[in-house]
């Protein structure tokens, strides 16, 4: 029996040849560029602006894992809300019919991203992850 793990392990590490994260995600990414225009103290409460480095990290994480899920399993992940996070970080937030997931990309590139998700019931996930690694399992959880 082919396990999910063996299927995912066959996928090459470099999956950038096809840009197949989906039109919805591409549109959300384009709209989120406006975050880069926010200046320090944009909210009157001292919030810093957003760097291209942090934004790129969030976008690459999103595109790579959504693409892998699409190509390996044919699952098209809906577009998240790509939103301003606290203190210069960027949030990726999904809300489906049954589950909700928040991933935060911090400003420090050496720090892992944090995530939390649940189904408003007994199922919840929480932790940190290396955005440069393979994390499509998290999006699979969202789509379960």
């Amino acid at each position: 029996m082919t396990t999910l793990q063996s299927v995912l392990q066959r996928w090459p590490q470099d999956a950038r040849q096809e840009d197949d994260s989906g039109p919805e995600i591409e549109e959300a990414i384009e709209e989120s560029r406006s975050l880069l225009e926010l200046e320090d103290d944009w909210d009157g409460e001292g919030s810093p602006g957003y760097t291209e480095e942090t934004w790129n990290r969030a976008i690459e994480f999103l595109k790579d894992d959504a693409r892998r899920l699409r190509i390996i399993l044919g699952i098209r992940v809906p577009a998240p809300s790509i939103s301003p996070g606290p203190n210069g970080s960027i949030d990726l937030h999904w809300k489906t019919v049954s589950r909700e997931l928040l991933i935060n990309i911090p400003t420090d590139p050496d720090q892992p991203a944090g995530y939390y998700g649940d189904d408003s019931g007994k199922n919840r996930i929480k932790g940190t992850l290396d955005t440069s690694g393979r994390n499509e399992w998290l999006l699979m959880w969202l789509m379960d």
Binding site: L38, G46, S81, G85, P86, N87, H93, L102
Partner: peptide, 19 residues
């Protein structure tokens, strides 16, 4: 602040922070 507003009328979760 209005910049925390999302298109669907909800607010970005980033507003919930310590300052």
């Amino acid at each position: 602040h209005k910049t925390w507003a999302k298109r669907d009328g909800s607010i970005s979760l980033g507003v919930f922070k310590n300052t």
